[in-house]
Each structure stands twice: as structure tokens, then as C-alpha cells.
């Protein structure tokens, strides 16, 4: 077999490592602030979710499902969440949910402006696209390592890793949506003397809304899929149970927490999808 010449090899990773070390050294303060902020958000969301008693949650989900589709789907969603409780994973679900919600909120805050900015600067797109591809295809374990170094163990690096993984669809779809606003519509807005900001808020964003909502739906789903991975660095929640089950080869426990993740994902997916469909009739 032919081998690639040994003297012709480089180690790219050591440069990244040096860079990470440099960041840790010089930006520790910055990371500390970030840690505090993210912790604060997760904590508060957890409290808000936690303050609502379980039976109210079930009722709430039933009503939501009923309102946006019909009573049958309302019933099936509320049954799903009831089942999570029956399996004894209610608190884990609350943890997971608060991490996912935090990550999604931050992804939206980061993703939408970047998406908009990109659509105004097509040249930037050629640079950002490969970056987005990288964020989505790089095995998520790989950036758990620097995340851990920056933020320590626990919830915060989990949120960080989730954001990296789940922001790209939000950026992509926002960018796409803004670019797809019909040229004449934009021209019409400008022809009446609109400023750029007015065109953005009165024309482009309302037009882009259905697609942006689809992006947010995808972002949420991606965030859900990171639940197990982020439990590896100590995030609590349903993922942690899966991890324990793997370590113990406990099929029953694995299934319980696995099916709970599935139920939670289905509920979140349907809810966000319905919201985006509401915008679709324009």
C-alpha cells in the first residue's frame, strides 16, 4: 500500500489548541460573564417552567394542541407529556426543556441578524456558508472539549454547544427568506422613499416570516437532538439518563428516557410548526 510521505504531514490541531489556550488565558473574564448570563437565563426559565404544576402543563398542552389543530391532537400531545410523568422523568424533562429553550432563544438572537446581514452582503455569504456547514457537520463532541475548557462542566457548555449546532438553520433560512422577497416588492417600497430600516421591518421581515419560522422550528429540533450529547459534559436532564443507561447497559431505562425525548420533540415540533403555518397564509 502506498503511504502518504511522513515528512509531508502537519498537525493543524495544535494551532487550534494554542488558539483555545490563548483565548482561555486572555478572555477568561469574558467567558465568566457569559457563564453568568447563560446560567441566569437557564435558571429563570427553569423556574418559570417549574412553577407551573404538572397537571396545568398537561391541560395547557391539550388546549394549545386543540387551538392550533383539533382536540384529537391536543389529547395525544397531553397524553405524551402525561406519559413522561408516568415514567418518572418529569423533572428531567423540565431540565432538558430549559436548556433547549435557552439555546433556541440565543440561537434566534444570534441567527436572525446574521442571516439578514448576510443577505445584504452576498460576498460575505461565500465565507459564512462553509462555516455553517462546518458547525453542522463537525462531530459535536469535538467542540465539547473547548466548550468545557471555556465554561467548565454543566449546563453552560451544554447550552454553548447546542447553540453552535442549532444556529445554522436559523441563519440559513433567514438569509434565504430575505433574499427571496420579490424584487418588485422591495423596489416598490424604496420607490415610496422608504429607508433601509423601513424596508426591512415593513416589507422584508413580514414577507420572510413563514420561512424564518420554519428555520426556528429546525433550530429547535436540532437543539433537541443535542440533549444526549451535552449530557456528556454534565448537563442534567433526559440525556443524562440515556447516558447512564448506556453505561449500565440498562435497556429499560434507555427506552424510558429515549421515548420521553421523542415525545418531547414531537410536541415541540408540532407546536412550532403550527406557529409557522399561521404565518403561511400571507
Amino acid at each position: 500500500m502506498n503511504t502518504f510521505p511522513e515528512f509531508f504531514q502537519i498537525d493543524l490541531g495544535i494551532y487550534i489548541e494554542a488558539f483555545v489556550n490563548w483565548l482561555t488565558l486572555h478572555f477568561q473574564g469574558f467567558f465568566n460573564i457569559l457563564t453568568t448570563i447563560i446560567k441566569w437565563i437557564v435558571f429563570n426559565i427553569q423556574n418559570i417552567i417549574g412553577i407551573i404544576p404538572w397537571f396545568l402543563w398537561i391541560l395547557l398542552i391539550f388546549l394549545c394542541g386543540w387551538k392550533i389543530k383539533n382536540w384529537k391532537s391536543g389529547l395525544s400531545y397531553s397524553l405524551m407529556i402525561f406519559l413522561i410523568g408516568l415514567l418518572g422523568l418529569w423533572n428531567e424533562m423540565i431540565f432538558t426543556l430549559s436548556i433547549v429553550i435557552t439555546a433556541v432563544i440565543l440561537s434566534i438572537i444570534i441567527g436572525i441578524p446574521i442571516g439578514i446581514y448576510m443577505s445584504y452582503h452576498p460576498r460575505l455569504e461565500t465565507w459564512i456558508h462553509p462555516l455553517l456547514d462546518g458547525m453542522q457537520t463537525m462531530p459535536s463532541f469535538v467542540y465539547l472539549i473547548p466548550a468545557m475548557i471555556f465554561f467548565g462542566l454543566g449546563t453552560v457548555p451544554a447550552v454553548f454547544a447546542t447553540i453552535i449546532y442549532s444556529t445554522p438553520p436559523c441563519i440559513r433560512l433567514t438569509n434565504l427568506a430575505i433574499k427571496r422577497v420579490p424584487k418588485e416588492m422591495r423596489e416598490a417600497a424604496y420607490s415610496f422613499g422608504s429607508s433601509r430600516w423601513q424596508v426591512l421591518t415593513k416589507v422584508e421581515l413580514p414577507q420572510a416570516m413563514p420561512t424564518i419560522m420554519a428555520g426556528i422550528n429546525q433550530t429547535t429540533m436540532m437543539a433537541m437532538s443535542m440533549v444526549v450529547v451535552s449530557s456528556m459534559i454534565g448537563a442534567k436532564g433526559l440525556g443524562e439518563n440515556v447516558l447512564i443507561a448506556i453505561n449500565r447497559s440498562d435497556i429499560a431505562m434507555g427506552f424510558n428516557s429515549g421515548i420521553s425525548i421523542v415525545f418531547l420533540a414531537i410536541i415541540i415540533d408540532r407546536m412550532t410548526q403550527m406557529i409557522s403555518q399561521k404565518y403561511d397564509n400571507i
Partner: peptide, 23 residues
């Protein structure tokens, strides 16, 4: 000046109407 000109002096009608479909 341009915005002012477009707001006050001139208006355009488009081939494919250019209506804002969300309004």
C-alpha cells in the same frame, strides 16, 4: 434628498404590481 424626492414627487406602478402581500 432622494427619500424626500421619492416621497413627495414621484410614484411608481409596477408590471407585477409590487403589492405587499402581507398587508
Amino acid at each position: 434628498q432622494l427619500r424626500n424626492f421619492r416621497q413627495k414627487k414621484v410614484a411608481m406602478v409596477f408590471q407585477n404590481f409590487g403589492l405587499l402581500t402581507h398587508r
